[in-house]
Design a protein around this nucleic acid. Sequence first.
DNA 1: ATCTATTCCTGGCTGC
DNA 2: TGCAGCCAGGAATAGA
Length: 246
Amino acid sequence: MIGHSIQRAEFSSPLVTRFNFGETARALEGAVIEGIRRRGKQIFFDLDLGILYVHLGMTGKLLWNVAAGKYARAILELDNGTLVYEDIRQFGRVEFFESLPEALQRAGPDALDVTFAEFHSRLKNHRGQIKPLLLNQTFVSGVGNIYADELLFAARIHPLTRASRISKRRAELLHTKLIEVLQLAIEHRGSSISDYVDGAGERGSFQQMHNVYGRGGKPCPRCGALIRKIAVAQRGTHYCPRCQRA
DNA sequence: ATCTATTCCTGGCTGC
DNA sequence: TGCAGCCAGGAATAGA
């Protein structure tokens, strides 16, 4: 898409585009895509006129040259193909900005790039529980509910552990697993539990490798104890009570 | 600073 | 077969 221009834009969801969808569509016509970036779950299309921001939320999909379905909320016709944004629940965003709003710049370092020194210094400063902290995108950008559970399992940390009380040694393991688990998930094209597909419309397979997420009541693959499911910060949280001690 | 609950949506599943 | 209730990959927001 880089170097190509948007011929026509069509938006049909005021929620996804934050109510200004007529303006958004007009603003994009004729724009040239100069680059595409990502930080955590935030996707940025750098245009000559501004920035197109995309966040998939819970059920968003970005499709390149795949026929638009019932839940298409935005369609961008480029001179070399068509990008469609689909989203059943409309918690995602496709927004145009001339410059990036301050709120979006508050995101923390990308989970794949954060150094241990930075990760550790941020971790030490938080007295709250580790699971909600991992979900906080201003702490580290890019960890969602599935991967928070999976990487806490990999690092053998109980989800309710106070962040500031995690030892340096254990923090090193958590930092290593943060990158390892996400890299492995990317290699397997993500977790397709119900809706998620990649740009070509293909499902990922990492859901088959989940150790704890979605496995409440089933045996831990490491020790056989039954995986427990609790609510933490109103999010379903799965862990092994034997491998991840409080 | 941190916590909790609520809200925005639609659809799938379960149990009656 | 219908229907109520609950749950779901996110995250902003209000109030304590």
